[in-house]
Structures are given as structure tokens and as C-alpha cells.
């Protein structure tokens, strides 16, 4: 049985009056001692997944099992214990408490867990030694470099010997010399008795990973020919939150664009008539569809992969992503 088993994980929430679904039936598993890299661009659901694994966010549906124990549905003291004892988190912006020394920061999870102060300090010093900061235990975060702060954050995540270590973009604020040290450290953390999950859009980390989970699907868009589609009256082309690689041009008929509100009602956004295009932002920026599309009447469409669309409509694509030509100075 896998140490970490994520099944059909879906997270949906209200964002500014609309439902968004950053995770849609996500499945992956990791064995004991593995380093798992969650790869994908911003907005693809990496942080949402980490939050769910850490027990900070309750998924809409699905299951997260850690060493056979279900995490989804934990509440009250059990959830607090999961956060305190089972999971260690390394946050993207280090998120050390500015008023505490390196040692103080590392001690926090232990003190919150009721460990006596002296014992907590001893353990913190031990961990700071492991991450190479034995000489900096009394320094505050403001007196440490980014890489050193990240090491303190890692020590804090490890201090209670968690089963699962989560690191959110651990190299985001570091220079390349610091990145090297942090990557080496993360790699050494993935040992039996522990699973390390790292989210990143930095594909350098993939080289040290045991397992890679791509949260943004890759489409074979490069040289596919355009596709012809015929939709019957009311037939749905795609739903809000879906991923897709085609930009559509309405050849005949009309397409309604709408969004789903949290209460299940629809908000009509536009009706695309014959001769116009839609659905370009998602494929261009590799984002989920921000709205749904449905045939208003029987319609015929052409679906273009991005490259083909750009070749056929070079000006419209600039307009689509907000690029305007700046007039030359007189």
C-alpha cells in the first residue's frame, strides 16, 4: 500500500461570486521515502493540493490517505493533531515569525504540542545543526539570508518528525547558489519514514524527484489540424474549470458563454455569433476554462490548436491577450 494515496481529489470554491475548481478528480500515490514533485504553472492548483494535504483546506470530495489513515474529514483536536504532528510545511515565503530567533521558530511546533521548553530547545538546536545553521540559532529571520531562512523553515517542518513534509515553491525566493543547497537538502529529507511533496514551477527540481505529478495537462497541440464540430441545440461544448487546447471559431449558429454561480444558477456572459471566436485564454495561458460554452442553436464550429489559430488570425490573438501596438512617437 502506498504511504500517501490521493484519490479523486476535487476542490471547488467560490471565488468572487463564481465557482472555480482548481483540482478535479486528481489521483496520485507516493511510496515511503519518495520525493514527489507537483509541477505546473501558477494557478493550476499546487497550493490548493498542499493545503488539502496539510489539513488546512477541506476538499469538496475525494480521499487523502496517509499511511492508511484518512485525512479528509478530520476535525477538531484530530485535525489540530494532524497539523501539529503528521505534517511539516515549508512555506513559499519562509513565513518565519520575525520576532523569534531561528531556534524560537523551530521550537514553535513543539511548544504548541506541549513539549517542555528545554527539550524543545535541544531538539531545535539539533535540527538547526542538521540544516547547517548551528551557528545561527540566536539570529532573527531579518538577520538571515533567504537560503538560511528557508533552512530554518525546513528545520521547523522537520522538528516533530512528521510523516509528510510539504514544501511550497521552496526555491522561489532564492538565488541559484541557495537553490542548490535547498534542493540537496530536500533530496536528503526523502528517506524511509517520510514522504516529501514539493510544489514548483521550476523544472530543475524534477531531476531529483522520484515521482512527478503534473497538475496542468500537456496537450499535443503543436501540429494538429483544426477540428470540425457540430453541436445540437443546447449541447455543452466545455464547462467552467475544464482544460482544453482549442480555440473555437463559430462557422454557423451561435454559442452561449456563461458562468456558474455558487448557488448553481447561471450568469450569461455573451452570445458568440457566426464569424467570431472564443475560448482562447485557457489554451494560450494553459489555464482552466473560466466559463462554460453551450450551443444556443444547432451550430457548426472549427476548433483550432493555438499555433494554427495564431497563424490564421495573427492580429486577433494579440487582441485576445491584451497586447496592443504602441504607436511610434511622431
Amino acid at each position: 500500500m502506498a504511504e500517501l494515496d490521493v484519490r479523486d481529489l476535487t476542490v471547488e470554491y467560490d471565488s468572487g461570486g463564481y465557482m472555480v475548481r482548481p483540482l478535479d478528480k486528481l489521483c496520485f500515490a507516493a511510496n515511503d521515502g519518495e520525493l514527489v514533485v507537483l509541477l505546473g504553472p501558477s494557478g493550476c492548483g499546487k497550493t490548493t493540493l498542499l493545503s488539502s494535504l496539510a489539513g488546512l483546506l477541506t476538499p469538496t470530495s475525494g480521499s487523502i490517505r496517509l499511511r492508511g489513515e484518512e485525512v479528509v474529514g478530520l476535525s477538531g483536536p484530530a485535525l489540530a493533531r494532524h497539523r501539529r504532528e503528521t505534517v511539516g510545511v515549508v512555506f513559499q515565503a519562509f513565513n518565519l515569525i520575525a520576532s523569534l530567533s531561528a531556534r524560537g521558530n523551530v521550537m514553535v511546533p513543539l511548544l504548541l504540542g506541549g513539549v517542555p521548553r528545554r527539550q524543545a530547545a535541544k531538539r531545535a538546536d539539533e535540527l538547526l545543526g542538521v540544516v547547517g545553521l548551528a551557528e545561527r540559532t540566536h539570529h532573527r529571520p531579518g538577520q538571515l539570508s533567504g537560503g538560511q531562512q528557508q533552512r530554518v523553515a525546513i528545520a521547523r517542518a522537520l522538528v516533530h518528525g512528521p510523516l509528510l513534509v510539504l514544501a511550497d515553491e521552496p526555491t522561489a525566493h532564492l538565488d541559484y547558489i541557495q537553490v542548490e543547497g535547498i534542493l540537496t537538502l530536500l533530496r536528503t529529507l526523502a528517506t524511509p519514514g517520510r514522504v516529501v511533496v514539493v510544489s514548483t514551477h521550476d523544472d530543475r527540481i524534477t531531476h531529483i524527484a522520484d515521482r512527478i505529478v503534473e497538475l496542468a495537462p500537456q496537450f499535443a497541440t503543436a501540429d494538429r489540424p483544426p477540428e470540425e464540430l457540430v453541436l445540437t441545440d443546447g449541447e455543452v461544448l466545455f464547462n467552467q474549470g475544464d482544460r482544453g487546447d482549442l480555440v473555437y471559431v463559430v462557422e454557423e449558429g451561435a454559442i452561449d458563454i456563461y458562468r456558474l454561480r455558487p448557488d448553481g444558477s447561471e450568469e450569461a456572459l455573451d452570445r458568440i455569433q457566426a464569424g467570431n471566436y472564443f475560448g482562447e485564454i485557457g489554451p494560450l495561458l494553459n489555464l482552466p476554462r473560466s466559463a462554460s460554452a453551450r450551443a444556443a442553436v444547432k451550430s457548426r464550429l472549427t476548433g483550432y490548436p493555438v499555433r494554427a489559430f495564431r497563424q490564421k488570425f495573427p492580429q486577433t490573438i494579440k487582441h485576445a491577450v491584451g497586447q496592443e501596438t504602441i504607436p511610434a512617437a511622431p
Binding site: 489540530a80 513565513n95 511546533p109 504548541l112
Partner: peptide
């Protein structure tokens, strides 16, 4: 605010 969020993420209760 950020400290509070971090402390909560580390298992600190709102009461504390």
C-alpha cells in the same frame, strides 16, 4: 496576520 496564519497552520488554536 501572517504570523497568525502560520501559527494556525502549525496547529495553534484560535483561543491560544
Amino acid at each position: 496576520t501572517r504570523d497568525f496564519a502560520v501559527l494556525k497552520a502549525l496547529g495553534c488554536s484560535s483561543v491560544r
